[in-house]
Design a protein around this nucleic acid. Structure first.
Length: 479
RNA sequence: GGCCACGUAGCCAAGUGGCAAGGCAGAGGUCUGCAAAACCUCCAUCACCGGUUCGAAUCCGGUCGUGGCCUCCA
């Protein structure tokens, strides 16, 4: 498949280092507070990338993928936030990671194969820093800090398209800094009172930001690996510094392909923790289904900024219903009836994802397939195989397209009350609904439409929808 | 100020040289006792100006507007 590569500025063909295998590293979150939709957006994009790479029906016949995504659980923000709350920063990080992992599961995100944390990777980080120092690209100071020597790398700035001169304007030395050069950045920070710290050749301290990703990607994917992903806001300085560090240590090329997703905007402005204009994943999941959130995230190409509005999420929810309805349609074809042909939609879906993971076009192919299924149902064609394809494509995008179960969606007591009101006393749950449908069918057969409509309205109020079809009434939980 | 994206229907959004995908909303119709769902039909000269070309939303130049990065950030 082709992917847009930030380093070269080109869309280039993925050619894995080891045929059939792809290594993917994605920068995860700094868990100092609850995750927001921007994190979900990013995670969904890479989740779909990994699902597609693994899918046996992709053009390459499916890759074996090793997917690594980290948690930066040692960081200035965590330390500050921990101090504010009076909680150990690592405990705070752990709480937020646990919440985020529950949310990831709810969003249908496949767990990465490795989820390393800074706090458990200290030896690898120290070893990497030692290597960089030995190669002359970093230096330790008397205070116990270690800095990367930016000017020792002639190609510094190559990822973000900047030069040291450009970057230098606008930066200045902070008072008390012991760097050689203003753009040099910390690989290791000497301990300050009250902060988490580990022993190192340079004294007690902790890793700087950036070095953890170099250490973890190297440890779990090797010196050179296939794809490195993250939000576009990480291009500079985080990813720029990662390349510089890693290549300074190994002398080999780092990531072969840099993939960056666009930001989620809120009211036209970047949604971020620091701006405080974010919608948390927790809040979003209360109002919208995981599928709706996914369709929202995937309805634009991943590099395009995505403006979050309630209307857009609501619309995505209705779009999901459309797909789910096609998947639920009853196959009424008679034996030997011709089948709905799904091959064109399937091919378009694959073409779209092969071309820089164009999920918007992939979704369009799915909607066209849904329409073909519905039409085929009306025309008495066999829709079974086409529905199977739709389900398969939905899996690649991580969509479940399943209604909630009756027990999840409907209050038991409310259902029992409705059943009692219309004289249905036997059974609960689905049995009660079936009883009510029978009662309604009797009423309608007697042309007592008032009772029939009252039953329908009562069920609708508690979240159960009735559709009258030529084969009788069908019910479903409202999406 | 520097670097980089983007500006397509009421809303979201694909398309990067050859009659403008898809979703939501809206209008009309079919089906239905009525609904719902579904199906059918309709709904855009692609920010503006100039240029290249037989032909431009797509390429080039300019104008205006929006966003991102340059400091922590998915």
């Amino acid at each position: 498949m082709r992917l847009s590569d930030t380093m070269s500025g080109q869309t280039i063909e993925l050619e894995p280092l080891r045929p059939g295998h792809v290594g993917v590293y994605v920068c995860g979150v700094t868990p100092y507070s609850a995750s927001h939709i921007g994190h979900a957006m990013s995670a969904i994009v890479y989740d779909v990338l990994v699902r597609y790479l693994r899918w046996p029906s992709n053009r390459a016949g499916g890759y074996e993928v090793r997917y690594v995504s980290n948690y930066t659980d040692v960081d200035d923000k965590l330390i500050d936030r921990g101090a504010e709350l009076g909680v150990d920063p690592l405990v705070l990080a752990n709480q937020n990671i646990e919440q985020w992992e529950r949310e990831q599961e709810a969003l249908g995100l496949l767990p990465p194969d490795v989820r390393p944390r800074v706090s458990t990777e200290i030896p690898a980080i120290i070893a990497l820093i030692e290597q960089i120092i030995a190669n002359g690209h970093a230096y330790a100071t008397p205070a116990g800090n270690v800095y990367f020597r930016v000017q020792s790398k002639a190609d510094y700035g190559k990822l973000s398209g900047r030069t040291i001169d450009q970057l230098r304007s606008g930066t200045r030395f902070e008072p008390g800094e012991d760097k050689e050069f203003a753009l040099d950045f910390a690989l290791w920070k000497a301990m300050k009172p009250g902060e988490p710290h580990w022993s190192s050749p340079w004294g007690e301290g902790r890793p700087g930001w950036h070095i953890e990703c170099s250490a973890m990607s190297q440890r779990y994917l090797g010196d050179t690996f296939d794809i490195h992903g993250g939000g576009v806001d990480l291009v500079f300085p985080h990813h720029e510094n990662e390349v510089a560090q890693s290549e300074a240590a190994t002398g080999k090329p780092f990531a072969r392909l840099w993939v960056h997703n666009g930001m989620v905007l809120r009211d036209g402005e970047k949604m971020s923790k620091s701006l405080g204009n974010f919608v948390t994943v927790e809040d979003a999941l209360e109002r919208w289904s995981p599928d709706a959130i996914r369709v929202f995230a995937l309805s634009s190409q991943y590099r395009t900024p995505n403006n979050l509005t309630n209307e857009a999420l609501d619309a995505a929810g209705r779009a999901v219903d459309r797909l789910a309805t096609a998947l639920e349609a009853k196959n009424t074809a008679e034996r030997g009836a011709p089948s709905v042909d799904a091959s064109e939609a399937r091919a378009r879906f694959i073409d779209a994802l092969e071309d820089d993971l164009n999920t918007a076009q992939a979704l369009a192919a799915m909607f066209d397939l849904a329409r073909a299924i519905n039409r085929g149902r009306d025309e008495g064609l066999d829709i079974g195989a086409a529905q199977h394809v739709l389900y398969e494509l939905a899996w690649v995008l991580g969509l479940r397209l399943e209604r909630e179960s009756l027990a999840q969606a409907v209050d038991e007591a409310a259902l029992a009350e409705v059943a009692a009101r219309f004289g249905v006393t036997a059974g609960a749950g689905a049995e009660a609904v079936e009883g009510l449908l029978t009662r309604r069918a009797e009423a309608r057969a007697a042309r007592d439409f008032a009772t029939g409509d009252a039953i329908r309205a009562a069920l609708d109020r508690i979240g159960i929808e009735i559709k009258d079809t030529p084969q009788g009434a069908e019910w479903s939980v409202r999406g």
